[in-house]
Amino acid sequence: MIAHYGYKDGSGDFFISIDTDKCTQCSDKPCLEACPEKIIELFTDDYDDEVVGIKASERNKIKYTCLTCKSTFGAGHAACIEACLLEAIEHSW
């Protein structure tokens, strides 16, 4: 499934989309280590698949939490996006 984590508020749309069907084909989950803020976590979803997602406590803050990382990698890029070889992760901003 495509999980959209994040939010829309007056200042814009901030979503990290993860194609969790690809997570099930990935054994290393390099995104977990790559994220400098450690906001990605491994969990078992409702259909008993082992996938990654954004920690619940972080979902509504990603505009600020991801700021430093995104400014290093440039617009539309981030450590998690680069780390995922299956191209399962996208940012909306």
Binding site: M1, I2, A3, Y7, K8, D9, Y47, N60
Partner: peptide
């Protein structure tokens, strides 16, 4: 009835 894609917005009351 299996989820294919989802989005949840619970940050803002709008």
């Amino acid at each position: 009835g299996k989820v294919v894609s989802f989005l949840m917005n619970d940050k803002c009351a709008a």
